[in-house]
Design a protein around this nucleic acid. Structure first.
Lengths: 180, 180
DNA sequence: GTCTTTGTACTGACCGGTCAGTTAAGAAGG
DNA sequence: CCTTCTTAACTGACCGGTCAGTACAAAGAC
């Protein structure tokens, strides 16, 4: 099997802990305990602590970029934008820890996995920017895309962290009502 | 003098390092070296590592909330919103490290200074929410506010970190063109 | 004017604990 | 019995926090 149960348990536990506390503040021992394995297994399966996080992020990157690309596929204008917002919110709900991690780490420098984070950012924002460039050619595509992306991302996290009782539809409506 | 030069040097160095690397990843020794003082001085002046960060955040909190409150004072509707966006961008430019720190730490839990961070968030978002509630009573004030706040904040950081050659006016225009 | 005292700001060597990473031995399974 | 995977014990580096001591200025004491 390509991804053993042990690997999956470790990745899952690590993602949750790191999203909440940060990379350096989370010890490998804690991750191993939460995953129900011994510390050595983490090193056997991922080589190093940062190796583990590169794996986590690479996995999340692939998932998110694929989802966003698929969501915009064949659509144009406002319709494409609405589909992107909806898909991003869906992904945030499905993988809130990864979303937190992204927000927390995007503007830092020097970590080994920074490139991967930067990659999701560029890919995701690129998808938004493409729609913007096509639909509103008079606007600055990347600044506009980051505003749209930021609005969706922070509203999504506000929802999951502080107002978890709301529905995706509530949040979607709020975001779409504020952007034009 | 209330705040000695030593204190200021330490706060300044600490804010820069922590915004870039995170709290746990930054050692007190590193901060002291960057500030040009001995490690002991950090503990003499702030008591503990987390005491130092509570001081940093409290300072930033006061500055930001006062600025936003002042910006919305006496204004209404779209005019108030535009003033808030402009003021938030101005603050982000003046104190980019504090902005990074906010983004990185808002969705974490359990740190001793978390309450202070939460406080800026609530205050800042509250100022936006008040304008929303007054101007567009049919919209959800807090979800809308977080979308507006998120759009401005992430566009602002995109600007400072990835496109520093742009002007505040460029970013302001992009954000205001995207929100309605 | 000089000597002693006192208080404050600061220093850096040091200590105890924590943590990433290693290793050697054992289980699981074919 | 051999490969793959897992484990517990261990190691050395690093880090937060402490503390005994230095520097120095202000304030009496004579």
């Amino acid at each position: 099997m390509r991804t053993s149960a042990t690997r999956e348990h470790i990745v899952e536990a690590a993602l949750a802990l790191v999203a909440d506390r940060g990379f350096t503040a989370t010890s490998v021992e804690d991750i191993a305990t939460a995953a129900g394995v011994a510390k050595g297994s983490v090193f056997y399966n991922f080589g190093s602590k940062s190796g583990l996080f590169e794996a986590i992020i690479t996995e999340g990157v692939g998932r998110l970029t694929a989802a966003l690309r698929g969501a915009a596929e064949g659509l144009h204008g406002r319709e494409a934008l609405e589909s992107l917002v909806t898909e991003l919110l869906t992904q945030i709900r499905a993988h809130p820890d990864f979303a937190k991690l992204m927000v927390a780490e995007t503007f830092r420098t020097g970590r080994s996995w920074q490139d991967s984070i930067r990659l999701v950012r560029d890919e995701s924002m690129g998808t938004f920017a493409a729609v913007v460039a096509e639909t509103w050619p008079e606007r600055d595509p990347f600044l506009t895309a980051s505003a749209l992306f930021g609005a969706t991302l922070l509203a999504g996290l506000e929802w999951l962290v502080f107002q978890p009782d709301r529905t995706l539809e509530d949040v979607r409506a709020a975001v779409l009502a504020t952007v034009r």
